[in-house]
Structures are given as C-alpha cells and as structure tokens.
Simulated assay, not measured.
Amino acid sequence: MSTANESATANPTVLHFSADNDIADIYRAHLPPGWSLDALSAAPDEAEKLRKVRRADALFLTETPLTRDHLAVAERLRLIQRQGVGYDTVDLDAVRARGIPLAICPHGTPTAVAEHAILLMLAAGRHIVRLHEDITVHGRWPKWDYRSRTLGLDGATIGIVGFGRIGQEVARRLLAFGSDVLVYRAPGRPPLERSWPRDRVRTCPTLNDLFAAVDIVTLHCPLTPENRGFVNRTLLERMKPEAILVNTARGALVNEDDLVAALRERCLAGAGLDTLTVEPPPADHPLFSLPNVVLTPHMAAGTRQAHIIKAQAMFENVRRVWNGEEPLHRVV
C-alpha cells in the first residue's frame, strides 16, 4: 500500500470500477488537475479487473462486486469509495483484513431518490403507464375510467420504513404535497427531531400497524440479513386494497413471490419498484405481466445533478486520504 509521503510527489490514480460510460465522463469532467481516471471495459474479464485494481490508488464503486481476490492484488489502494450508500457487493471481511478504508457517498443520493420515490407513488397511484398505453397502443381515450381508483398524495397517509437521509427527504417533499407521514424506525433508533410537525409526521410502533394504516408504503432502509424479505405475505395482506407499495431501496427487502400473489389477489392496488432481488431480472419475471406494477431499472439516484455532486464529494474524499486525513462517511 502507498504511504502518505507519496502524496508530495505523485497524484492519485482513481479507478471507476465499472464500464467506461457517460458516468465516467462526468467524473472526468470534474477530475482534479494532474489526477488520472481509469475505468473498465464494457465486458471486463477477471484479468482486466485484477490488472486495473493493482494500479489504482482509489476505487469508485458502483455495482461491480469487489471480491477478496481483487483486494489481494490492490497493493496501492488507499480508499474504496462507494458512489452511493449501499455496500452489499463488497467483501467486508477482506476489506477489514487489508485495513483499507471503505466510505460511502450520501451526497446527491437523498434528493434524487426522494424525487424518484414520489415519481413512483404518482406513476402507480395515478396509473400513468396504463393511461399512456391505452392512448398510444390501444387507441382509447379513458378520460373517466380510472378516476374512482386513482390515488393522489394530497390528504393521503404515507408510511416510510427507514428514516435516514433518504427517508427524511421523502417526508419533506410529501409534506409539501399535503400528505401525512407515518414513520417506522428499527428498535433503538432515537425519537424524531422536534423540528418535524407533530400533527403531520408521527412514528408507528410496529410494521403491522404501519402497513395497515397507510395509503402508500415506501421503503428506505438498508438490506441486512435480518430484514431480507421482511415485506412478506403477512404484511402485504394487512394493506388497504387501494394501497401502493414503493421500493427504491433494495429489491431483496421484498419477498417477490408474495408480492406477485398479493397483487394478483388485489390485496393492494399496485407497486412502484426501482429495485428487484435479481438485477437485471429474467425476461419471464412474473411482475412483468402485471398491469398494476411500474418498474424502473435501479436508477433512482441516477440524475446528472446527483452524479456531479457525487463526483465532487468523492474526489474530495480521495484528496483527504491522499493528504493523510480520515475520509468522510467511513463505514469500515
């Protein structure tokens, strides 16, 4: 591993541990003078990954798994920088064994994901995809057909599972729409800050109570071994028949077989999903055949503005490590 003294005579080489694409171009546009940025090819083999990791001083991670074998050859690596906030594709034991800092980048993500979560609420609740297809594919003009089963946000109660940075950004926007917010936080979490209006934002003691009480459930919690598949048939059957499930967190939080069954049986009205358990999903995934589902390809955080903010924050974290400082938002 490089030493701090090298920073006086050399500039870092950053590896975008993903394909050389438009996102890499955004990073290059904000690359500090004298620094180098490398990226993987469109279909890298293991030999390419090992070769490029070996000469990297810092790694920008998206979704390519970072394994023990990669870390074993990372002789110069001084920072593993996740471009988002999840790090379930990283071999954490190997990271700890090497003593390389792993940091997340919360900058840019909360705003973009919050916007996308609300987009999915509106798209599913107001049948946007089906209305578009009725007009453009089926030649219909269903001006009155959907009104009695259309769900808006004004006056609705939205349940937020997980109230970290993203969950709070969602709540702020929902208040502007005229919604009330019910929050579930894992046991042991601190109470809500007093700045939240108590008549509009309240906590709910159990998931069972939250799923039964709200018009929309939106998930904003990390994936852990304990909560994998926690959105199951038991919770889904507690939802109102006109309610919507939104997931912009991790697909494996939801038992997809149970969700498909609940949607078919009209236990809930619809779902807006940005994440699935297997990505990309198989072509015959049963969710594809359901008219009351809106899907997007795990890109809730993917606005141009968010990636510019991320680029600036991640390069600043590399600079800190290069100068012998502790990285911000270190998780390992």
Score class of each variant (00 low, 15 high):
249 A>N: 01
83 Q>N: 07
290 L>F: 12
125 G>D: 07
21 N>P: 14
179 S>G: 07
233 R>V: 00
268 L>T: 12
286 P>H: 12
42 A>I: 01
251 G>L: 08
196 W>R: 00
184 Y>D: 02
304 R>C: 08
219 L>V: 01
153 L>C: 11
172 R>V: 08
302 G>Y: 12
327 P>N: 12
295 L>V: 06
243 A>Y: 09
164 G>P: 12
89 T>G: 03
306 A>I: 08
219 L>N: 01
93 D>W: 03
301 A>R: 04
44 P>Q: 06
38 D>G: 02
250 R>I: 04
330 R>F: 03
233 R>K: 13
183 V>R: 02
166 I>A: 04
224 T>K: 09
42 A>F: 06
94 A>R: 08
215 D>R: 11
254 V>R: 00
120 L>G: 07
118 I>D: 04
218 T>A: 10
76 R>I: 02
68 R>F: 10
46 E>T: 06
283 A>N: 12
212 A>L: 00
241 P>H: 00
295 L>S: 11
24 A>W: 09
292 N>R: 12
50 L>V: 08
308 I>C: 04
150 T>A: 10
325 E>C: 08
25 D>G: 08
165 R>F: 13
249 A>D: 01
273 L>F: 10
209 D>L: 15
245 L>A: 05
86 G>F: 09
74 A>M: 08
51 R>M: 10
254 V>Y: 04
92 L>Y: 04
153 L>W: 06
50 L>N: 04
280 P>V: 11
45 D>P: 10
95 V>P: 03
104 I>T: 14
172 R>N: 14
180 D>E: 09
199 D>K: 02
110 P>D: 01
89 T>S: 11
263 L>S: 02
194 R>T: 15
193 E>P: 07
21 N>A: 10
296 T>Y: 05
318 V>N: 03
123 A>V: 06
125 G>Q: 10
134 D>F: 03
156 A>N: 06
238 R>D: 01
8 A>N: 02
79 L>D: 01
235 L>T: 05
143 K>S: 11
318 V>T: 04
140 R>I: 00
52 K>H: 11
181 V>Y: 07
193 E>R: 14
148 S>Q: 15
111 T>R: 10
74 A>H: 03
191 P>R: 12
211 F>K: 08
182 L>R: 15
240 K>Q: 14
143 K>N: 14
97 A>T: 09
125 G>E: 07
148 S>G: 13
37 L>R: 09
88 D>L: 09
101 P>C: 03
3 T>N: 15
287 L>R: 00
153 L>S: 06
57 D>N: 15
252 A>L: 11
267 C>M: 11
146 Y>T: 10
26 I>Y: 02
97 A>S: 14
180 D>P: 04
1 M>C: 12
